[in-house]
Structure formats: C-alpha cells, structure tokens
Design a binder for these strands. Structure first.
Lengths: 162, 162
DNA sequence: GAAAAACAGTTAACTTTGTTTATCATAAGG
DNA sequence: CCTTATGATAAACAAAGTTAACTGTTTTTC
C-alpha cells in the first residue's frame, strides 16, 4: 500500500492548482456570455497589452504583437496559435496586418468590436476580483505575489522546463 | 483602444495561474518518464488517498474509491473518468472490483505495479517541492495556504460555479 | 551576388482531455 | 411488480494542443 505523507509543501501546491482551475472555470462562465473561451480571451488581453500579464514584464512592446509572441506568452506552439487566431478573425474580434518592413511578419490588432468586448469583460473581471479578494490587506496580496514570484524563478532555473 | 489598468488583484491571479501551469508542465516531464500523464497521475494519487489533496478534507474515505467520486474530486464528468480509467486499467496500474453490497458500484484499486509507480514518483515530487520552496519559512507557506483557502471559499460561495 | 540558413506563418493529421446524450443494468420504495 | 433513482458505459463530438512538412521572406555566409 502506498502511504503518502501529509506535507505543507504539497498542500500549498494543491491549493494553488485548485485556485487556478476554479478561476478558469468561473472565467469560462463569464467569457461564454460573450461567445468566446478563456483561452481566446487571454489572447485578446495580450493584444490589448494588459499590464498585469507576466509576459510583459520581460518583453517590452510598442508594435502590435505577432503570432509568435503570443505563442511564447502562452507557452504553446505556433500552429496552435494560428488556429486560435483564425477563430478570433472569423468572429471579427481581431485583424491581421502585414508588417511594412518584413513581409514574413503579420501584426495583430483588435477590431473596434474586439476592443468593446474586452472593455465589457474587464468590468466583470474587476467586480469578480473585488469579491474574491475582499477582506485582504494590500500587504497580504503583495506577500503572496512575491512568494509565487520567487517560486516561479526557482521553477525556471533549478527545475527543468520553461 | 482598450486601456487596461495595472492592479494588484489581477497580478495575483496571473501569478497563481502561471504557477499552476508551470507546475503542471514540469510535472508532465516527471510523469512522462513513467509513461503516464499528469491527469492520470492525479487519479492514482486519489486512489492512494494522498492526504494533501483538498478533496479529502471534505469527504471521509475508508472504502476504495468509485469513478463517481473521482469525477467529483477532479471536477469532470463521469464519462471522462471512465475513459481515463480504461487507460490506467490497460496499463495495468489499477483494477476494478465489484462492490459486494451494491452491484452497480465498482471499486477502484491500485495494483502492485500502480503502487510501485506512485512511490517512485513520490520521491521525485518531494525532491522537486524542496527545491521550489527552499528559502521560505513554514509560516510563510502557511500564510499562502490560508490566503488561497479563503479565496477558494469566496469563489464557491459569492461567485458562480463549483 | 548566389547559395545556405534562419525565421514567420500555415496546413494536415493526430492526441488528449473534455463534453453531452443515449443506453443498460441494478437498487430501492411504494 | 412497477416506477424511479443510481452507476457505468458507449458513441459522437468539440476545444486545445501537438509534430511534421510546406510556403515564402530575410539574413548570413562564402
């Protein structure tokens, strides 16, 4: 019989994973009202340059994003991003624009419709966040942020994959 | 143009989600060495009654688990669990046993091979956890745990879905 | 300056994980 | 005995992801 010990480390991880899954599940019910998935919403947030996204801390951005950058930010393959972008183009939420200096590159832009949608969802997100984080001091949130930041660093350097 | 504000709340969430994804990705490279996926590993942990899994805080367990309970614990459909279990049965890691008192129920048990595999992965997990949580005091980890615990409670009660 | 290498994106075939719906068998309560 | 609830499964499908092979462009290199 496998006897697995109770440890604080494992407990912390399961808590974090559970939070992430629950958040995504709840997010799905919000985005579904607007006809998109959480994944598609995250791409729209990237195009809107949401400053809260961790990717933008390491990469500065002036020009509109490219598919390759989205793939890096989401940690998925370029082929997958192509598929997801096609869906968003079909829905009229984004457009592709050929780069003037490099014909290989395609710059991605939110349409007016896409911008409107992001702004609507943004209101619901802010409201939701207030609810789940009510009762916590700013300092507490900052501590959690720093804790996870340090963990992420160790996950990248000491342990394997990116 | 959508202008999204930088907020601590949103930052905390993206940190937690990123942690979860990175952990799963790294976990995948561990479990892949043993020929299973992270998802399949989590099922094996449930059958091994890993006391760190949040599900076991709310549900007491003496008898071997059923497919329905796994579906509840993982928050997925029963049909999906059937598929995953078939894979694990095929790999010789678990067996099904008809319940003596209710012929509808099927109890799930780790085989000797499954138990051995869990114990091997457990060693790697402990090692990995030590690495990413080195340098943190016990109190810090406890605080993060409690923080997320309270958030989860609010996610279930105040905000929509389970 | 032409050939080779690197880069951005796409397409096609496939896997994993998940869903819903329908079906079947067993239990349990009038 | 008949109805209803329960547990499991099969079938058909969707979303998101993968790898591999293929266009075209730039860059590099000789």
């Amino acid at each position: 019989m496998a006897m697995i010990k109770k440890t604080l480390d494992a407990s912390v991880i399961f808590h974090i994973v559970k939070f992430s899954e629950t958040w995504k599940r709840n997010g799905e019910t919000i985005t579904a009202k607007y006809g998109i998935t959480t994944q598609q919403w995250l791409i729209l947030l990237l195009l809107a340059k949401d400053p809260n996204i961790l990717y933008f801390r390491y990469v500065s951005h002036k020009k509109p994003m490219m598919a390759k950058e989205i793939a890096n930010a989401l940690n998925v393959s370029r082929a997958n991003v192509t598929n997801l972008l096609n869906i968003l183009i079909q829905k009229g939420l984004i457009t592709q624009q050929e780069d003037s200096s490099d014909a290989r590159r395609k710059r991605l832009l939110l349409t007016r419709l896409g911008t409107k949608l992001i702004n609507q969802i943004e209101k619901e997100r802010t409201c939701y966040n207030k609810k789940i984080f009510s009762g916590f001091a700013i300092n507490q949130k900052k501590q959690v942020n720093e804790f996870i930041d340090l963990c992420l660093e160790k996950m990248y350097t000491e342990a394997g994959t990116h």
